[in-house]
Amino acid sequence: MRAVLSDAKVLKLSMDAISNMIDEANIEASEAGLRLRAMDPAHVALVDFLLPAGSFDEYECGSEMVLGVDLDRLNTILKRAGSADSVELRADGEKLDIVLHGRAKRRFSLPLIEVGDEELRVPELSFLAAVEIEPKLLSEAIKDVEIASEHVTFACDQQSFRISGSGDLGSVEVEISREEAISFSCEAPARSMFSIDYLRDMTRAGDLAESARLSIGNDIPLKLEYLGSASLSFLLAPRIESE
């Protein structure tokens, strides 16, 4: 497998978000591109990251490969890439070479590891509302809520989409009107609560896309999709009010 990416931003941002939640994962390389699907150790979040072949400047993949990677290490290496550097990924069966082409050619070699394949069952979910907003709006809202709470409640009705949280330190509510959203659909009022730690990590990747699409229901997982040249989507299990 060999792939060249002249703009490494997408890869850097996604890895930064993912590696915070997931320590190691299998990256599947196929003709379609690179795909990473993994669940965090607590089985609360599921990541589906696809970097299609077309988004690379050069991409060749003879046969399908599974690259077991320590994401933390990979992220550390990618962080070394400057904004003008192009990134080349090369894999044989034993290691993943990351070559940063800039004024110098910097080659990093990352040994591949054995990552246990867990069965990733993507649940069937019936969302009640889907809102598409600017990624920045979402990440800022999370930061706002974080001031008061460890948890975020997403709520949606016909008029608006609200991101709120409350704790001992007070409460915060961010309201995004129907008009402000890029797209807005709501069949019925929906409301779910989530851990802010995960959302903070997930929204770090915000800059890689023009829009963030949130799908929510009542006490069911949240689906967050960043769709751009790459697609990065998360599924996050809610916190359910205990009776």
Binding site: A42, H43, E124, L125, E150, D197, I220, A237, P238, R239
Partner: peptide, 22 residues
């Protein structure tokens, strides 16, 4: 960090459920 994430599931408002429950 990882322990705290798990820890928060058991703390106060709401129970963190896993994706497997859906």
């Amino acid at each position: 960090k990882s322990a705290m994430k798990a820890e928060k599931t058991s703390k106060s408002s709401g129970r963190q459920v896993s994706l497997g429950e859906f």
